[in-house]
Design a protein around this nucleic acid. Structure first.
Length: 589
RNA sequence: GCCCCCGUAGCUCAGCCGGAUAGAGCAAGCGACUUCUAAUCGCUAGGCCGCAGGUUCGAGUCCUGCCGGGGGCGCCA
């Protein structure tokens, strides 16, 4: 238990049942109490069914003995124990214990959530856009999932180090720089562009033009190659121009991150160029350890675990025949740097699932090199693709990649249309702000609420339909609570009277509220934000049921005060949960 | 050839460490605004959980084998 932590009810019940098992069946002491939420009571324990065989008796008998021991204990929150079915223990808690949870969580600055990640140095590698290229739909998932994990792990006490592995190095820059030199009249700086054109889209256009020239004009291609050599040799003018391009791109990335509510800042960027100067040393280390070996003129690492189609080991390309380095080498350098210099004990790569084999090989090599040790958890946090309505990778009608900014604009447009329909005397300014929050939230929630490993179909209309398991449903639930609290003018701390009887809708709501911290811990463990989405959706539904069944403002005291406390805790929990997903929680919609 | 991921309602998806009658939303039908925001709620209808074995008191969940879909396997990143 860490500071401010409030042990969840299910945790308390686990302790109670475990204790009861210890006393009723000493020979089975320490057994898993198998406590779960239940449709038939607040919680149920399924331990008796599993334990019966070990105790060489019938499940009902075990259940009976455990329930007796449970009833004999006076310090548990359990009010009622019944045995049902083949040996399920149905457990109902005292109303007092539920109200006490509300009071305790309300009194905690962090809602009683523990810090199970405390002391961990966790690197999260995510987003990774390419300099001079527009961010597109392919960057959506890594950026959003990665950012949510950063937020959750940070809230759970981890020291999180964000790493944006920019694609800021490579032969393409020779091409681009040469093209800019050949066309000094090209406009691409953010302060000289006309409204509606971003730096990256300007650079993106120039890049396409440069590519076309490279393919069509051998003389240009030759000059571009010379430029690559100049860049790598550190030629002053070329490097200056390169830095200028990177800075302009970072300016544009910052705009999109800001709009998305993503925490990444320029100082989180350690791109390919950052690792470039480390590569020879990484290669030396792997070579002298005998891990990297020569093959067909190149330097490779043969896997000891995976074979390819020809039956030979799969390889990492450490140094190409021409002496150049690819991204295998760069990723070997990242893992060494993150262990040695960033002191990471957990390294998360939030990257498309198609890179699964690549990371398996990287981790294998890093273990053999002694960089990754048993105490360090390196994981490929794989995610699926975003698909179009046809079930193929999401493209525009003309077959181009979908630009992220345009995708967001479209979602916000749809959100604005829906809000304008129902708006309650909103100013234009409020409408614009809320449409932005709802539209962006809808896109992010749709991405986060599905299992990250699976592909999903991008369907704006469903995302902003504002019904069902959507971001806006959660935002709306939050605004309704805020509205009550505004009218109650309940800004000071509320004293909960724990002796009041619970309405069923209050009971269901409190059980959900109480599970928030355990859900977060689960997200920290599984790295699956959709579990938080599911929980918040259940919470919002439980609140809506409460909202329908239990009047707050018109209730007589002392019920009114307790219900206001429930509203306060609901608003804070929902608000915190949305914040950890990186989604705004407006007070009015 | 080998490896990885996926397969649950017409559609889009949940289903936690194996637990009681598999859940939401959309779409379809019916109903509820004098009420703290109806962007909501209630009801109806909809299922060989890809198939077949196995483990288990108990399998959508674990294991094996198939079938179907997607992805990956040396000088691109």
């Amino acid at each position: 238990m860490t500071e401010h932590e409030v042990r969840s009810l299910i945790g308390q019940v686990e302790v109670a049942v475990r204790d009861a098992i210890d006393r009723a069946l000493p020979e089975l002491a320490g057994a898993d109490p198998v406590v779960r939420r239940s449709e038939h009571a607040d919680f149920q324990s399924n331990a008796a069914l599993a334990l019966a065989k070990r105790a060489r008796t019938r499940p009902a008998e075990v259940a009976g003995a455990v329930s007796e021991a449970l009833r004999a204990s006076t310090v548990t929150p359990v009010a009622e124990v019944t045995v049902s079915g083949p040996g399920f223990l149905n457990l109902t808690l005292t109303d007092v214990s539920l109200w006490q949870q509300v009071a305790a969580r309300l009194a905690s600055p962090r809602l009683g959530v523990g810090s199970p990640e405390q002391g961990r140095h966790t690197v999260v590698d995510y987003s990774g856009p390419n300099v001079a290229k527009e961010m597109h739909v392919g960057h959506l998932r890594t950026t959003i999932i990665g950012d949510s994990l950063v937020r959750v792990l940070g809230f759970l006490g981890a020291e999180v180090i964000r790493q944006n592995h920019l694609g800021d190095w490579g032969t393409q820059f020779g091409m681009l720089i040469q093209y800019l030199d050949d066309h000094p009249d090209a406009t691409w700086h953010h302060d000289e562009l006309t409204e509606g054109i971003s730096t990256v889209s300007a650079l993106d256009n120039l890049y396409r033009a440069a590519r076309a020239a490279f393919d069509a004009d051998p003389a240009f291609a030759e000059r571009a190659r010379t430029r690559v050599v100049a860049l790598q040799a550190g030629d002053e003018d070329t490097v200056a121009r390169w830095k200028e391009i990177v800075a302009e791109s970072e300016f544009a990335f910052r705009e999109i991150y800001h709009r998305l509510g993503v925490l990444l800042e320029p100082e989180d960027s350690d791109g390919e160029s950052f690792y470039n100067f480390l590569l020879p040393d990484v290669v030396d280390e792997l070579t002298s350890a005998g891990i990297a070996v020569e093959s067909d003129g190149a330097l490779v690492v043969f896997s000891e675990e995976v074979t390819g189609p020809d039956g030979n080991p799969v390889t990492l390309m450490v140094r190409k025949k021409d002496g150049g380095y690819g991204y295998d080498t760069t990723d070997l350098a990242t893992i060494r740097y993150r262990v040695r210099d960033l002191k990471a004990d957990r390294i998360l790569y939030v990257v498309d699932s198609r890179q699964a084999l690549h990371f398996r090989l990287i981790f294998e090599a890093a273990r053999r090199a002694g960089w990754l040790t048993d105490g360090i958890d390196a994981a490929h946090v794989a995610h699926g693709a975003v698909l179009g309505p046809d079930g193929r990778p999401f493209k525009t009608r003309s077959g181009d990649t979908v630009k992220l900014m345009e995708l967001l604009d479209h979602a916000v447009d749809r959100a604005r249309a829906a809000i304008a329909d129902k708006a309650h005397e909103l100013t234009d300014e409020d409408l614009a702000r809320i449409a932005e929050q709802a539209g962006i939230g809808a896109v992010k929630y749709a991405d986060l609420s599905t299992s990250r490993i699976k592909d999903y179909v991008f369907d704006v209309e469903r995302m902003v339909s504002f019904n069902g398991n959507t971001g806006v449903y959660l935002q709306y639930a939050h605004t309704r609570i805020c509205s009550i609290l505004r009218k109650a003018a309940a800004d000071r701390a509320t004293e909960v009277d724990p002796t009041l009887p619970l309405h069923p809708a209050e009971r269901a709501l409190i059980l959900e509220l109480d599970a928030f911290g355990d859900t977060l811990a689960e997200v920290g463990r599984t790295l699956e934000p959709h579990r938080l989405c599911g929980h918040l959706y259940d919470l919002a539904k439980a609140f809506t049921d409460f909202y329908e069944a239990c009047p707050v403002l018109s209730a007589a005291e002392p019920v009114r005060t307790n219900r206001i406390a429930l509203c306060q805790l609901s608003a804070r929990t929902l608000g915190q949960g949305l914040n950890l997903l990186g989604i705004a929680a407006p007070e009015r919609m």
